[in-house]
Design a protein around this nucleic acid. Structure first.
Lengths: 340, 340
DNA sequence: AATATTCAGTTAAACGTTTAAACTAACAGA
DNA sequence: TCTGTTAGTTTAAACGTTTAACTGAATATT
């Protein structure tokens, strides 16, 4: 049987309270006693039991992680990486992460995650789009909620978001630094908040560098940011007569479609048209040429979410911090300096 | 504050023991009392607290999940899916999964996962290759261990494995049913147990259907089952004069490499040469033609692992069951009937 | 010298359950 | 009528911690 605090106390010749105080670095304990206790702890390989601690402290030591089923199991492991980030950081702070997936169309009838009912989490991190009805139900428990990669439409919560504007700015500026002056934007569905932000970043970069904004160079009405629609968008763009020497697509999937179209048309990438995406998905590397893109630091986002959560848990008053994590330019072979 | 068993007891006018007995369906309780208690539980939305239960029952209600860092975060979400499977099944049985990643080169010096020290898991599921030194350390705790997708070289543990032989058999038989008679095998590193098994399945299918086994049609000495080596292997294979009308590659990555080579050589897939892979990775769908392959039921494997674990936890004597989960043929466009 | 303060530790209650053992009332058997 | 049995419920201990309140000794203050 594993050692308990009683065994340690007996071995060190003190009361169990003393052992506990030593563990919590209480200054009331004399150096000698502390040393004896520490030695006993080591000898017996003692570690306080999770449940016992949890019971008396009324803290579970766990953080819940909620994500919809399809988000978590989709092929691009975006949320998996975020989850992994939370795991790393939680371990650091001696918390456990309890993951649960929920149906994408969560309704009032569906169960609440069990960890809430059993009071087995001290707070909850929610990743990606979460049905409002669930958010409502959760807010009734007075657990801190932290959102990652989703800005809840109602309520005021701590969130960790990608800095889309900054990322798009970096992408566009990179193209400008390559000497490109006719830079197109392919955006998929402009209703989507992240895409809107990326569009803003694009325009900011143009303005900052004194380039004109030409609506003819933008396609923002495709229904979905997929490869197929990337292809379609490129087709629209290049069927006009406007000259184009660079394209910024708002995600890598669309960039891949665009690339396919350009190749079919015999347009050389990166020489004739330089191409930059957004996301940094696995497929980028096996493209020809490998895609220059903006990397989203997924692991980092997860870590930040946990840090926000810890702050919430340690502070008395509710506090709401919104965090933008910067995306990073990854230069590969689909962009290059323009030959004059 | 959330309701406790005391609140329920008071509301129903019984002792807390009665409430507990009702919850555990103890037959000693009279129907009327039971009904009253159940009503009170419902009214107060009472759920027993996890830590309190854990403390008194000396069970954590958690199952640990260990996987190496690189396995979990690699691009193809193989272990993520397995993990997800464990989550689904664990939820069913009212267990929580506690995931932790470990360094791939785990040494004696590295920490044990915290959930072991804190006695916060009742058993551990280990996915993928696990360093023997860790297995040794873990076996000293008397927690049940269940392995998924890895057959530990020492010791006798419950395991869940892919039925590689059956999968390879299915793949090869599919090619035979397509009327192919000169079927090549590309295997990567034959030292790897799964690859050996797939090789066995391949040979079994040939024998079963009275086709000769020709060593010239096999490449099994590539260092690593990657796209590049798939390309190389195909090159070796097709540089000989032996006719080939189908190829079974032991995984999809090598199939992709092989496909690239065949296209470059102007060999038509699936007409001239039909091609089948193994694994069913995401990329298969965006190939031209989309790859016929053998799907590994990852979610199912995770679920099975949990079921095995539950059996371990509920049975007194140690028991060791080995499970092979069948892989499934997924027909796409890279295979077709041979034109005579 | 008497009293107050500080130091270093102990005592005991509490957290929310489970469960063996004890209890009580009703009933059956003699 | 007394004893034994059974059914239904309660009592109380236990699980392994934390921590407020307490104690006794040593030291400081007057």
């Amino acid at each position: 049987m594993a050692a308990t605090i009683k065994d340690v106390a007996k071995k060190a010749g003190v009361s169990i309270a003393t052992v506990s105080l030593v563990i919590h670095n209480n200054p009331r304990i004399s150096p000698e006693t502390r040393k004896r206790v520490l030695q006993a702890i080591k000898d017996l390989d003692y570690h306080p039991t999770h449940s016992a601690r949890g019971l008396v402290s009324q803290k579970s030591g766990n953080i819940g992680f909620i994500v919809t089923e399809d988000h978590f199991s989709r092929s691009e492991p975006f949320y998996t990486q975020i989850f992994l980030g939370t795991e790393f950081q939680a371990r650091e702070y001696e918390y456990y992460i309890l993951l649960t997936t929920i149906p994408s169309k969560y309704t009032e009838k569906d169960d609440l995650p069990r960890f809430i009912l059993e009071r087995n989490v001290d707070g909850i991190i929610l990743a990606g789009k979460i049905p409002p009805v669930l958010i409502n139900r959760l807010s009734r428990y007075k657990l801190p909620l932290v959102f990652v990669d989703y800005f809840p439409p109602e309520g005021n919560f701590p969130v960790v978001m990608i800095d889309n504007i900054d990322g798009a700015l970096k992408a566009t500026e990179h193209l400008i630094e390559c000497g490109r002056t006719h830079i197109a934007f392919i955006g998929g569905d402009i209703e989507h908040p992240s895409i809107q932000e990326r569009f803003v970043g694009y325009k900011m970069a143009l303005e900052k560098h004194g380039l004109p904004f030409d609506p003819n160079l933008t396609v923002t009405n495709e229904p979905y940011p997929s490869r197929e629609y990337g292809y379609q968008a490129a087709k629209k763009l290049f069927s006009q007569q406007t000259p184009i020497d660079a394209v910024f697509t708002c995600n890598d999937a669309m960039a891949i479609g665009t690339l396919q179209y350009l190749k079919e048309q015999g347009i050389k990438v990166p020489e004739d048209v330089s191409l930059i995406g957004f996301d940094d998905v696995e497929a980028d590397l096996s493209l020809d040429p490998p895609l220059t893109t903006i990397r989203v630091p997924k692991i980092e986002m997860g870590m930040q979410a946990v840090r926000l959560m810890i702050e919430c848990l340690n502070s008395e008053q509710v506090f709401v911090k919104k965090l933008l994590v910067p995306a990073e330019l990854v230069i590969r072979k689909s962009t290059c300096k323009k030959q004059q």
